Computed example of a mutant assay.
Amino acid sequence: MSIRHGLLALLERGTMYGYQLRAAFEESTGSTMPVNIGQVYTTLGRLERDGLVRPLPENEAGQRPYEITPAGRAELARWFANPVSRTGRPRDELTIKLALALTTPGVDARAVLRRQRVATERQLQELTGRTCAGHGEADLSWRLVLDAMVFQTEAELRWLDHCETTLEREHPDR
């Protein structure tokens, strides 16, 4: 999730200061995507610079709430209206690790695959053991985040199966 757009979506609910935004962000994602407070304030600074949020006067506790601007609402609407592009994906460490394991002398690629499988299966067990208590939008949000994590982990297991099968078929001696 884009922290930038996540904060805009949270500010669409109403004014909040940094710690409230951090707590609301983590609540919305079931604490599966933690964000540190420094990242929240850095992002707020950029959003303010870009005219998407504006700070309000400090409250009696010395906290500075922020509100979304009309330009911020337009940016948020654009974000929600457009699909997420998967073309600019960050590098996937596991893919790189397996590719290099196959071409690095002295590395047992099958052992790398086995260790990853054990770790991925353990992660899947942990994810499927999590539950959502209560009802409401925050719980629905959390359930959907959890579902996405489970599906991604299952997809990784299927990909590891494919890697093992391909390696066995093409290099039975490795």
Rank of each mutant, 00 (worst) to 15 (best):
residue 137 E to V: 10
residue 60 E to P: 06
residue 57 P to V: 09
residue 51 G to A: 02
residue 153 T to R: 07
residue 62 G to W: 08
residue 67 E to K: 01
residue 70 P to N: 03
residue 146 L to E: 01
residue 75 E to S: 10
residue 119 A to G: 08
residue 96 I to W: 11
residue 115 R to D: 15
residue 114 R to S: 10
residue 93 E to W: 15
residue 88 G to R: 12
residue 109 A to F: 14
residue 137 E to D: 05
residue 80 F to E: 15
residue 71 A to N: 09
residue 157 L to Q: 01
residue 54 R to S: 09
residue 59 N to P: 01
residue 93 E to A: 13
residue 88 G to E: 10
residue 154 E to S: 10
residue 65 P to H: 00
residue 155 A to K: 13
residue 102 L to R: 13
residue 125 Q to T: 13
residue 135 H to Q: 08
residue 146 L to I: 02
residue 87 T to A: 14
residue 69 T to C: 01
residue 112 V to P: 09
residue 87 T to S: 12
residue 155 A to S: 13
residue 149 M to A: 08
residue 96 I to Y: 15
residue 100 L to R: 10
residue 113 L to S: 09
residue 69 T to L: 01
residue 123 Q to N: 08
residue 91 R to F: 08
residue 54 R to C: 00
residue 51 G to Y: 07
residue 144 L to H: 08
residue 109 A to C: 04
residue 92 D to K: 10
residue 51 G to N: 02
residue 139 D to N: 04
residue 95 T to P: 01
residue 138 A to I: 11
residue 145 V to L: 05
residue 155 A to H: 15
residue 68 I to K: 03
residue 66 Y to G: 04
residue 82 N to Y: 05
residue 61 A to D: 11
residue 67 E to A: 13
residue 108 D to V: 12
residue 62 G to I: 07
residue 107 V to R: 10
residue 136 G to S: 04
residue 94 L to R: 09
residue 126 E to G: 01
residue 145 V to I: 10
residue 92 D to P: 02
residue 57 P to S: 06
residue 98 L to Q: 12
residue 142 W to V: 06
residue 89 R to D: 15
residue 55 P to S: 12
residue 126 E to C: 00
residue 104 T to Q: 10
residue 159 W to F: 12
residue 96 I to R: 15
residue 71 A to T: 00
residue 98 L to I: 15
residue 83 P to M: 02
residue 87 T to V: 13
residue 154 E to T: 05
residue 108 D to A: 08
residue 97 K to L: 15
residue 112 V to A: 12
residue 128 T to R: 11
residue 139 D to Y: 02
residue 77 A to Y: 04
residue 73 R to F: 08
residue 83 P to G: 09
residue 113 L to R: 12
residue 101 A to Y: 04
residue 131 T to W: 11
residue 122 R to C: 04
residue 76 L to F: 06
residue 144 L to F: 05
residue 124 L to F: 00
residue 132 C to D: 07
